[in-house]
Amino acid sequence: MTITEIRSLDDPRVLAGLWALLEDSVNGGASVGFHPPLGAPANAAYWAGVAEQVKSGATVLLAAGNDDGELVGTVQLALCPKQNGPHRAEVQKLLVHSAHRRRGLGRRLLAAAEERARALGRTLLVLDTLEGREAVPLYLGAGWIEVGRIPGYTVEADGSRHATVVFYKPL
């Protein structure tokens, strides 16, 4: 498994891999901002936006590929553009394909994001995740500090509202 930075989403194979990864994650119940089933228009629009963010340098996109070159995981760093925030970034969309979960890949992607953040001079990371999901123990186990919960943060497809858990990690 190799983790690399994707600097452009112009390669159709890379884009197809990212589409498949997001679709697998959303349709498998991951809390990443979409309701299942994830349709092609929403998937395309999301990655088009990410492509622009990557191109502008506002977002760092890291991806894990297996020995066959298939994308099986990804994570993003949204770099704070504000004058008072050049030291911080937000970890977003940590995705691991369902066939590759429970093997430490999520932790490796998180560590790679932290390493890349350090290399960019970022000393504070933040993230949030849906309360009660498997990502909560992952972040705690990786040394992230829970700040608290925001009740009713997400609205699910059935209309129910759920809390998000907010974390930070000084680097």
Results as ranks from 00 to 15, higher is better:
Ala58Arg: 14
Val54Arg: 07
Val72Tyr: 00
Val54Glu: 15
Leu71Asn: 00
Glu70Tyr: 00
Ala51Asp: 02
Cys80Arg: 00
Val60Ser: 11
Gly73Asn: 04
Val54Gln: 10
Leu77Gly: 03
Val50Met: 14
Ala78Gly: 10
Asn66His: 03
Asp68Pro: 03
Val75Tyr: 03
Val72Cys: 14
Gly73His: 00
Asp67Leu: 15
Gly73Trp: 00
Leu62Ser: 05
Val50Ala: 13
Ala51Asn: 11
Gln76Phe: 10
Ala64Glu: 06
Leu61Ser: 07
Gly69Pro: 04
Cys80Pro: 02
Thr74Asn: 09
Leu77Tyr: 06
Thr59Leu: 11
Ala63Thr: 05
Lys55Pro: 02
Ala78Pro: 01
Pro81Trp: 13
Thr59Pro: 06
Val75Thr: 12
Gly65Cys: 10
Val75Cys: 09
Asp67Ser: 15
Leu77Val: 09
Asp68Gly: 03
Gln53Ser: 15
Ser56Gly: 06
Ser56Phe: 06
Gly57Ala: 11
Glu70Arg: 04
Lys55Phe: 05
Leu62His: 08
Leu77Pro: 04
Glu70Gly: 00
Asp67Cys: 09
Gln53His: 09
Lys82Gly: 11
Asp68Ser: 14
Thr59Trp: 05
Gln76Ala: 12
Ala51Glu: 14
Gly57Pro: 08
Gln53Val: 04
Gly69Lys: 03
Cys80Asp: 15
Leu71Asp: 04
Ala64Phe: 11
Glu70Gln: 13
Pro81Ile: 12
Ala63Arg: 02
Asn66Thr: 13
Lys55Ala: 14
Gly69Thr: 12
Leu62Ala: 09
Ala58Tyr: 07
Val72Arg: 01
Leu79Asp: 08
Gln76Trp: 07
Leu77Glu: 12
Leu71Glu: 04
Cys80Ile: 01
Gly65Trp: 02
Glu52Thr: 09
Asn66Tyr: 08
Val72Pro: 03
Val75Gly: 11
Gln53Ala: 13
Lys55His: 07
Asp67Ala: 15
Val54Asp: 10
Gln53Thr: 13
Val75His: 03
Leu71Thr: 00
Val50Arg: 05
Thr74Ser: 11
Pro81Gly: 06
Val60Arg: 11
Gly69Leu: 10
Thr59Lys: 11
Leu71Lys: 00
Val50Pro: 06
Ala78Lys: 05
Lys82Met: 13
Gly73Arg: 02
Ala64Lys: 00
Glu52Leu: 11
Ala58Lys: 14
Cys80Leu: 02
Leu71Arg: 01
Lys55Asp: 06
Thr74Ala: 10
Gly57Gln: 14
Val60Gln: 07
Leu61Gly: 08
Asp67Gly: 15
Lys55Asn: 04
Leu77Asp: 06
Thr59His: 09
Ala58Trp: 04
Thr59Phe: 04
Gly65Ala: 12
Leu71Ile: 15
Val50Asp: 03
Asp67Glu: 12
Glu52Val: 01
Gly57His: 12
Val50Leu: 15
Leu79Ile: 14
Leu61Lys: 05
Gly57Met: 08
Val50His: 10
Gln53Lys: 12
Pro81Asp: 05
Asp67Phe: 13
Pro81Tyr: 06
Gly57Arg: 08
Val54Pro: 09
Asp67His: 14
Ala64Trp: 01
Gln53Asn: 13
Glu52Ile: 01
Gly69Met: 06
Gly73Cys: 06
Val75Lys: 00
Leu71Ala: 01
Gln53Phe: 06
Thr59Ser: 14
Gln76Ile: 05
Leu61Tyr: 09
Pro81Leu: 11
Thr74Arg: 03
Asp67Thr: 15
Thr59Val: 13
Leu71Tyr: 04
